[in-house]
Amino acid sequence: MCPPHLQLQEMQSTNTRPMTEDDTIPDCVPSDTLSLAAYAHAFGNLHPAILAHSLRVWLFAKALAQREESEYATDRRMHLLFIACIFHDMGSCSAYNGSQRFEVEGADAATQGFLAPYVSESDAHDVWVAIALHTSPGIAERISPLARLIRIAVIIDFKRPAAMRFTSEKEVEAIEAEFPRGEIEKVLGDAVVDQVLGIGDAEASDAKAPAATWAGVMVKSKRANPEWNGVNKAF
């Protein structure tokens, strides 16, 4: 097992876009080794707009956890919240473009490929569930406290009306000023859909984006509107 203090170097060696001395880790990233390693891995693999979205999700989730006095606002468990946030869209990048749903690929990347040696099985499972279900409304909010925080933070960032009562206009403005949106709706929607459209086999395509899922609905919309180049109509 690789010692935790080497995890940052080990993860960075596999990054598509490794961090250099000129790249600064944002002050909002927790200072523990696993969080720093997670950020470096996200920086090296996620589209910049998706990375910024993941950091906004982290800040919204952290603020909500603090207001609600959640266990995930404590030093003992905050790294789990951060890693769930920073990995929640990891399945959208080429490094984790596998045969499973993008949410599951991201959940596996965070737990089996990253957290498993260093946290308890139950903690890793909580992170897996939070990532895997973050596009599942009505389930994520109730299955676990961590999944609820991630789900609410995600839909805050996408300005879903049901979530805006958990934040404030001032908080949204401050977080977006720190990490600008960068056409996240188009970038993320295209990344998820393009993974599926790149699969030649119909059965494999259906497994990657089942019809009733968020990805599946967006794929259906893209196929119905192939000339549309704006934000996916089903985003």
Score class of each variant (00 low, 15 high):
Val29Lys: 02
Arg223Gln: 15
Val192Arg: 09
Asn225Asp: 14
Pro18His: 11
Arg223Phe: 11
Gly98Lys: 12
Ile143Ser: 08
Asp22Phe: 13
Pro3Glu: 11
Asp123Val: 00
Glu171Arg: 13
Ser144Arg: 08
Val192Met: 14
Glu173Gly: 05
Ala209Thr: 02
Ala163Tyr: 09
Val219Asp: 08
Ala147Cys: 04
Ser122Val: 11
Met1Glu: 12
Leu64Ala: 09
Trp58Val: 06
Gly98Met: 11
Glu171Gln: 14
Lys170Pro: 01
Phe43Ile: 04
Glu203Phe: 09
Ala211Gln: 10
Ile86Phe: 02
Gln112Pro: 04
His125Pro: 00
Val219His: 03
Ser92Ala: 15
Gly113Cys: 05
Leu188His: 15
Val104Leu: 10
Ala234Trp: 11
Glu176His: 12
Ala73Trp: 07
Cys28Lys: 04
Ser54Met: 06
Thr74Lys: 14
Ile156Leu: 13
Asp23Met: 09
Ser120Gln: 02
Asp206Gln: 14
Pro18Ala: 12
Asp22Gly: 03
Met218Arg: 10
Phe102Gly: 00
Thr20Ser: 15
Tyr96Ala: 06
Ser54Leu: 09
Asp22Ile: 08
Gly230Lys: 01
His53Trp: 01
Val127Tyr: 00
Ala40Thr: 06
Gln100Met: 11
Ala212Val: 14
Arg160Cys: 11
Arg160Gly: 04
Val231Trp: 07
Ala124Gln: 00
Trp58Tyr: 15
Met218Trp: 12
Ala40Pro: 04
Val193Asp: 10
Asp22Thr: 13
Ala162Lys: 05
Glu68His: 05
Val219Cys: 08
Val219Pro: 06
Ser168Trp: 12
Ala191Phe: 04
Leu133Met: 04
Gln9Lys: 12
Thr14Asp: 08
Ala132Met: 01
Asn97Ser: 13
Asp194Lys: 14
His134Cys: 12
Ala73Ile: 06
Gln195Ile: 09
Ser168Glu: 06
Glu173Lys: 14
Thr33Gly: 05
His134Ala: 06
Glu178Met: 14
Phe179Asn: 07
Thr167Asn: 09
Ala49Trp: 01
Thr74Cys: 09
Val104Ser: 03
Arg17Cys: 12
Ile139Val: 15
Lys170Asp: 12
Ala38His: 11
Met218Ala: 12
Ala140Tyr: 00
Gly113Phe: 00
Val57Lys: 00
Met78His: 07
Gly113His: 12
Thr135Lys: 07
Ile143Gly: 01
Val193Met: 10
Gly44Glu: 13
